[in-house]
Amino acid sequence: MPAQRPLLNLADSSVSPARPADAPNLGVGVGLRTSHYAEVLERGRRGARGESGDRVDDGSGAQAVCVTSVGVDWFELLSENYMVPGGRPLRIVREMQEMFPLALHGVSLNIGSSDPLRPAYLDALDALARLATPRFITDHLCWTGVSETNLHDLMPLPYTDEVIEHVAARVRRVQDRLGRRIALENVSSYLSFNDDAMSEWDFVTAIAEEADCGILLDINNVYVSAHNHGIDAMKYIDSIPAERVFQIHLAGHSTSGSLLIDTHDHPVTDVVWTLFERAIKRLGPVSTLIEWDDQIPTYARLLEEADKARAIIERVTGWSSGSPNASVSSSSKSRTSESPGERRDVTA
């Protein structure tokens, strides 16, 4: 089992770069889950009626959004859950789109596969993007199936020049099809290849540079993979080019024997918060998302995690409501003063 290393020396981190125009800092968001639909939409509707929260111009010119009534600045939708013909899923997308900034996060782009790209999948994603008008479209730097058979898992790729060339060419085609840049997330992995010719961070960076796409930096995945492969999580965080980081993900993990597993069924761990702080010190305020996919807690509990992320961003960068970097913001100071479990909607 790899020895855990001391993780932090914040003093050596550098100043935040300017954000790319297509990767605005949206603030802190959460992944929307079915069990929270009713509460989120009701809070949003109350906010839209002016009963709570702020109506904030998010800078997109598309619509005013109401964010503070829900305690976060934006939501992420899992793309495949909404790539269906109709019914409740698409009604949820329409309602969410009217009220909140959204991101679409996929798990099945299969960008690293040796199979051809699937036009039908890209058509469905494009159709969903037209409905959701997301600020980001993201997926994972991995493969999920081959020979038209899906494993429904985020399988790691060999870190070689050939794979970089292969994946980057596919990312460019996807971006051409969607008419925008996407961001790819580093995945948690439990195996690595003898053919690996570089570090994971060099691999992630090379693809982002070669394809001119963004990186969705999942801090929990950095930590999980670093633990599982005996690599240096701090060096990983420090090596990712800041201007390529479009978004950050935070989640919890579990232990299984000698390995860590990216289960998204626990709170974010202390060591991941510490790594996040290091990342934010270096990157500046970046759109940050809390993921919680299994053993899903109450919405209020999820907001506690979001508030922790917000507090770190504010403390490290000085970013807050009204900050020039914040295209969407919220009155987090009011929120963080509330007791856990007794959260009320906030009127700024």
Partner: peptide, 18 residues
């Protein structure tokens, strides 16, 4: 030959997780 083993887990065990 394809998947790396180490002292914590061999290649078969690592693939077994998936």
């Amino acid at each position: 030959n394809l998947i790396r083993s180490d002292e914590s887990l061999d290649a078969s065990g690592r693939l077994g997780i998936y």
